[in-house]
Amino acid sequence: MPDVLIDVRNIRTTFHIKEGVVPAIEGVSLQIGRQETVAIVGESGCGKSVTALTIMRLIQSPPGRIEQGAVIFEGEDLLKASEKRMRQIRGNDIAMIFQEPMTSLNPLLTVGFQIEESLILHQSLSKQEAYHKALGMLKRVDIPAPEQRMHEYPHQLSGGMRQRVMIAMALSCSPKLLIADEPTTALDVTIQAQIMILMNSLREEMGMAIMLITHDLGVVANMADRVIVMYAGQVVEEAPVNDLFAHPQHPYTQGLLLSVPRLDARVSKLNTISGTVPNLLYLPRGCRFNPRCSYAQERCQIESPGLTQVNDAHSVRCWFPLGMMGGKKQ
């Protein structure tokens, strides 16, 4: 990997609810290099968003609690940083865009105000300078008639435009890392592609890294350099994007790939992964995936596997990785 920008080491975040302690993520480690795009994929509730919020230290507490680990960002452990320091980092060094462009903009503040906010906050620009920079950002995210849009409210914009505004807000201070939490899930397909293309060109232009949280494998194939697959709060596989698509090692990854509908293959029925995500309060013994795994053996039900290296860039959490045959096995 090139120069490491952020190094997440063995974090565990739990939620304390009345039914008990839910370990939303358990021993998650990952690294993102400068200007690299890393996709995090997995089903709903597997801990993708919690990982992102832990990095930003935005876990609501209570009920949430970051219990262990370290998030080393440019040599500084964010989990040990003061709240004041975190506010300087948020928006300036690490920015985030959210899933729902409909609700992530404040309905009562103008588009301009919301973009200017972080500029005034982090770069101590005057109102005038912030206005011009914000206008520049709107132009950069290809919003038509930006001067007019600056004074408009979110309800006057379409979903795609709102997501562009969110991107403009997040990127206004040229962050080094952009965390995009399912940025296109709420948009229709043509807009999705536009937004993805926009994010990618801005990434190249501004030289930032992107942590892309998604469950859309098509997006992953197009955008990401590396992919991290999560299941039930753990990283189960990590590999460069081509390697992962060609040779998935974990049965879960294989299942995910097989469940993508394809136009170029004649299949009568879509493959699914049977069963459901386990309740994090009652995790199965052994490997967390074993109840749903068609290759599960006795060992899988007793001992939980650690992450092991398949080659120097590819690791998997499985006792019986699928090997180089992985992609073709049915």
Partner: peptide, 26 residues
């Protein structure tokens, strides 16, 4: 709990400012 409040937090906006200029107008 709205996402726009979380978005404001992710931009590093201070607590009192979130309460007064982001939530109160609503």
């Amino acid at each position: 709990e709205m996402e726009f409040v979380e978005a404001a937090r992710s931009l590093g906006v201070k607590n009192y400012r979130i309460a007064l200029s982001y939530i109160l107008p609503n």
